[in-house]
């Protein structure tokens, strides 16, 4: 494998052939915001929060291969505005009420809003959909009001657990994540599945019952550090 270099926001990044822009950036300690991508899962490139300008073209950093000499723009004002718009639209598309959500503080969507300075109400309308809560499973509940259709649970269940508990249904704005059965209790989902682990669902849709407030609000992951600071800590300059 041949090694080469390219730049992100003027910082030289070492990469190897076959790596995506995001993989190389993660190793070099440059954080590119992302929601649908997660370490250990197949890249999907659907949330577009990781959009960067690569030689002037907008591409998803999680799926775009790095190439020698690429000039990548990551945290410019333009890209940050675009990302904030995407995150705001996700907030408006579902029912994301942080004060009542047990994932608050551990939620990557919320943490992304913090990182992108989302403090003002937006001009987008709230769609306020009416979606069901599936509490049929003895150990797991699904509150699809909070689902952002990132598909991380789909890939985790299919590729890691080898089960296929979750899948996409519908098209366009009607595309939703659904379960392979009438409800979750109908499927072979188990609390020990990787797809059900806390790290897979970025929001508060997949709920592990009886664990919700074990860590109090204010002492949670993103109360302590901005999202992406763990990756940025790896930077050695």
């Amino acid at each position: 494998m041949s090694a080469f270099r390219f730049t992100i926001d003027g910082v030289e990044i070492a990469a190897e052939e076959g790596q995506t822009i995001m993989e190389a950036a993660d190793e070099a300690g440059v954080y590119i915001p992302r929601l649908c991508d997660h370490e250990g899962l197949r890249h999907q490139g659907s949330c577009r929060v990781c959009t960067v300008k690569s030689d002037g073209r907008s591409v998803a950093a999680c799926t775009q291969p790095a190439a020698p000499g690429l000039v990548v723009e990551n945290e410019s004002a333009h890209i940050t505005k675009l990302r904030r718009d995407l995150v705001e639209m996700l907030f408006h598309e579902g029912n994301h009420l942080c004060p009542i959500c047990e994932a608050s503080g551990n939620c990557e969507l919320q943490a992304m809003a913090y990182r992108l300075d989302m403090t003002e109400p937006t001009k987008f309308p709230y769609l306020e959909p009416c979606r069901a809560v599936d509490a049929s499973h003895p150990d797991i509940a699904l509150d699809t009001n909070r689902c952002i259709a990132c598909g991380r649970c789909i890939r985790a269940s299919l590729d890691v657990d080898g089960k296929g508990v979750f899948g996409y249904i519908g098209r366009g704005i009607h595309r939703r994540v659904s379960v392979n059965g009438d409800n979750l209790a109908d499927t072979d989902a188990a609390i020990t599945d990787f797809a059900i682990s806390n790290e897979v669902c970025p929001v508060g849709c997949i709920i592990r019952k009886r664990e919700g407030f074990a860590t109090p609000i204010g002492e949670r992951e993103f109360d302590k550090a901005l999202i992406g600071q763990d990756i940025e800590a790896k930077r050695d300059d």
């Binding site: 608050s104 809003a113 913090y114 300075d117």
Partner: peptide, 9 residues
Amino acid sequence: FERDMIRFD
């Protein structure tokens, strides 16, 4: 706001 002062909860 400073980023670490933004909270929704």
